[in-house]
Design a protein around this nucleic acid. Structure first.
Lengths: 140, 140
DNA sequence: ATAAGGTCTGTACTTAACAACAGACTTTGA
DNA sequence: TCAAAGTCTGTTGTTAAGTACAGACCTTAT
């Protein structure tokens, strides 16, 4: 028996996205649309599943499709150029991790305070993250 | 001499957002609109600056305005309820940190490989973040 | 061999998160 | 004082990231 060709519907299912999302990603160039065979439907390479999953995991981390495309393109260029971009991305991610860690710490404190004693009337969440300690450290 | 009242324009500048953004946040309930005095313009409390800054820093971390509202509301409820929500948020943030850390590691490897020279023709970024690989298999 | 269901091309609708006016009113600075 | 600049209310426009069809065509299972 033949194993089933990975047509768009199966691809969408495997990557757990709407079929229209796949088409959309093709339109904006995030994934490549395979050639349409003389007869029949388009067949996708299995790697496309991983590519879409990557996209879907990167989005809730705060990356736009544009930024994700840049990440995905990192493997393609020439070394020097790639390294520069990769370093830039890494620094950006580093900052995100720092911000999230600070936020987490604040939540932990809030949770602890809540457990130990009462009067959770006001919490320092806003002050912590609004903090002047790191003003406008984001680039791009 | 009087110090200037914090009207909407000054607020926007202080928080480094468009004035329309402030109005938008009011419309959706993220920040409270002060009462309009009998005569003159609305005056905002200084905390609103921090609140907006918080919002603007939380967004690129992947939080929607809806989620940010939930974070900001954490300080308001009653202890038991608050703790549950806070713990949920903290776990979510924890996951985000893990994901970002993994991504950073991948980038670091790419950078190192790139430095130690030669062919960066292929990098493992996609595979890494695509997570629990069900490689080549998909269900119908 | 034919009905059911998947795919194709194209267009249109949706939601979140703003940004941009218009036209009237209010405050401020020279 | 009076023009420039800021504010108010309300409406409309914009971009990103999808989602939803319609109508024709293709494949597969019965």
């Amino acid at each position: 028996m033949m194993n089933k060709p990975l047509t768009i519907g199966h691809l969408a299912r495997a990557a757990d996205v709407n079929i229209e999302t796949v088409r959309y990603y093709q339109r904006v160039g995030l994934i490549q649309e395979p050639h349409k065979p003389a007869t029949g439907y388009r067949v996708y390479p299995a790697e496309t599943i991983d590519r879409i999953k990557f996209i879907k995991r990167a989005q809730p981390l705060g990356f736009s499709l544009q930024e994700i495309a840049e990440l995905l393109d990192l493997g393609d260029g020439h070394c020097d150029d790639v390294r520069l971009h990769a370093e830039e991305k890494r620094d950006q991610i580093d900052q995100q991790i720092r911000d999230l860690t600070a936020l987490k710490k604040t939540l932990d404190k809030l949770i602890t305070a809540c457990q130990s004693e009462n009067d959770a009337s006001h919490c320092p969440i806003v002050e912590t993250l609004a903090g002047n300690n790191n003003k406008g450290t984001y680039n791009t």
